[in-house]
Every structure is written in structure tokens, then in C-alpha cells.
């Protein structure tokens, strides 16, 4: 069967398409099959949470989607373009413009100011410095970080550092935002802030794929993909509006 290498499989509107993705990690002669045949289709503007127990292959899947790791087999289309066959250099260029990534431990450059951390990918992508600066100001305002531009990451609280990382990931207006346990090292306040920001960008149309082991975090997405042993065990799209009113009584009963 001949496959269309440029426009992707299926409906042309898909943002991210994955077919038969397999990845095995090899360390000291032992093989761990982290991702064992994943098919996934993500539409523009979707907010998808990938969840499952540790070792289920969540982070590996996200790394494959962002080109941070290469699959053993399988195909990936981003915005209709086949990307798994790209060279390292072309992937790096693509990632800079099309994919934003946020990690659990922020991965900010500790010697750079907040402003420089955020602007760096914009400048590396070759955008005019003036426009990058404008965009950075805009992001700092949206993320409630005005006045922090000259701080270094170490001077900020965890939730603030993650918001800086979010700004950095969004500076080039990526088609897809990938987030790997973005609240994994935050307290409940920091978690709430970051989730509120992610929801906000989602509402403005940002496509987001978020990996988390936390069901509370996952439930902020509008679709939850559950991985188990490197395979998709379940794929749920929430049908809103959910039954709100007094849902706590479904779990905790206080009055007879």
C-alpha cells in the first residue's frame, strides 16, 4: 500500500497523527519496550492528557512526538507533514517553530534572566529581535509575570519558573505544545496556576498534549488517553457539560 508522505493519513485537518509507533529502550543488554504500537490522532485545538502508571510509556511517547527521541518503527505526521523521517537538524528547526515543550523540572538556563530565557528560542528561530521582545512582553503579561523579566530562575517560585518555561515554549507560537508532567514538581498552588494558564491557552485554540500521572491534572484536558504497558488502554473524550451540581456527594457522603 502506498502511503502519502506529505499530507498525512486520514482527514487533512489532523494536527498530529501517529501510526504504529514503537520504541524500545536498551540499557546494559536489557530491552524495555516503552511504546508498543501506538496509533493516535489529535485534532487542532484539542487538549489531550496522556496518563497511566509510571513505566507505561507516557514520557517516551511525548518525546517521540516532539522528536526528542526517534521511534524504532511507526510514522508521525505533524500538521500533515511526515516528520519521523526528518534529519536531526531539520527536526531541530521544526521543533523550534512548530513544537513547544515544557518539562517537569522547567529546564531553564540558570545563568540567564527570565527575559533572556524566554526570548532565546525566538532569536534562535531567526525572528527579528524587536518582535521577539514584543512577544515576550505579551507572554509575561498573559502569564502574570510582569516585573520578573530581570530575575534569574532561582529567584522565582516553582510555579513561576514553570510559567517562564511555558512562555519560552510559546514564544514562537507553536502548532503543538507538549508538556511532560508540568506540575510534577509543583505544590498545589503552583499546580493550580499552571493548569489555569494551560486551560487559558487551550481556550484560545492552542493544541496541547500533556503527560501526567495525576488524574486531577488529566481531568482539565478534554480528552484523556490512558497508556498501559506501552499501549493505549483507553481513550476518553469528555462530553461537556458534565454533571456538576454537588458532585462531591457522589464520592463523600456527609448527611444521611
Amino acid at each position: 500500500m502506498r502511503r502519502n508522505e506529505t499530507s498525512g493519513e486520514g482527514t487533512p485537518g489532523d494536527m498530529l497523527v501517529v501510526e504504529g509507533l514503537v520504541k524500545t529502550h536498551r540499557t546494559d543488554g536489557t530491552e524495555v519496550r516503552a511504546v508498543r504500537g501506538v496509533d493516535l490522532r489529535i485534532c487542532p485545538g484539542e487538549f489531550v492528557a496522556v496518563t497511566g502508571p509510571s513505566g507505561a510509556g507516557k514520557s517516551t511517547l511525548l518525546h517521540l512526538l516532539g522528536g526528542l527521541e526517534r521511534p524504532d518503527s511507526g510514522r508521525i505526521w505533524l500538521g500533515g507533514r511526515r516528520v519521523d523521517i526528518l534529519s536531526e537538524a531539520r527536526w531541530a528547526a521544526l521543533r523550534r517553530r512548530e513544537v513547544g515543550v515544557v518539562f517537569q523540572f522547567f529546564n531553564l538556563v540558570s545563568t540567564l534572566t527570565v527575559a533572556d530565557n524566554i526570548e532565546l528560542p525566538g532569536l534562535l528561530a531567526g525572528h527579528p529581535p524587536r518582535r521577539v521582545r514584543e512577544r515576550r512582553r505579551e507572554l509575561l503579561t498573559e502569564l502574570g509575570l510582569e516585573g520578573k523579566e530581570d530575575s534569574t530562575p532561582a529567584e522565582l517560585a516553582g510555579g513561576e519558573q514553570q510559567r517562564v518555561a511555558l512562555a519560552r515554549a510559546l514564544i514562537n507560537r507553536p502548532a503543538v505544545l507538549l508538556a511532560d508532567e508540568p506540575t510534577g514538581s509543583l505544590d498545589s498552588k503552583g499546580t493550580r496556576e499552571v493548569l489555569r494558564m494551560l486551560s487559558g491557552y487551550h481556550q484560545r485554540g492552542q493544541t496541547i498534549v500533556l503527560v501526567t500521572h495525576d488524574a486531577n491534572v488529566a481531568s482539565t484536558a478534554d480528552r484523556v488517553v490512558t497508556l498501559h504497558d506501552g499501549e493505549i488502554a483507553d481513550d476518553i473524550s469528555f462530553t461537556d457539560p458534565p454533571p456538576t451540581g454537588q458532585a462531591a456527594a457522589h464520592v463523600v457522603r456527609l448527611l444521611g
Partner: peptide, 28 residues
């Protein structure tokens, strides 16, 4: 997960200063 989602929305809709209600939701 559906319950969790309605709980998230409930927490967002409920008065932040109503500690009892917020703790009940968090417990759930």
C-alpha cells in the same frame, strides 16, 4: 475521570474563601 472533571469545575465555580466547601471538594 468524569467525576474528577466535574469536581475540578466545581472547585473553580465555588467561592475560593469557602474553606469548608473547598476542602470537601479536595477530599472528594
Amino acid at each position: 475521570l468524569n467525576l474528577m472533571r466535574s469536581m475540578t469545575r466545581l472547585a473553580a465555580a465555588e467561592d475560593r474563601d469557602n474553606k469548608v466547601a473547598q476542602l470537601l471538594i479536595e477530599g472528594a
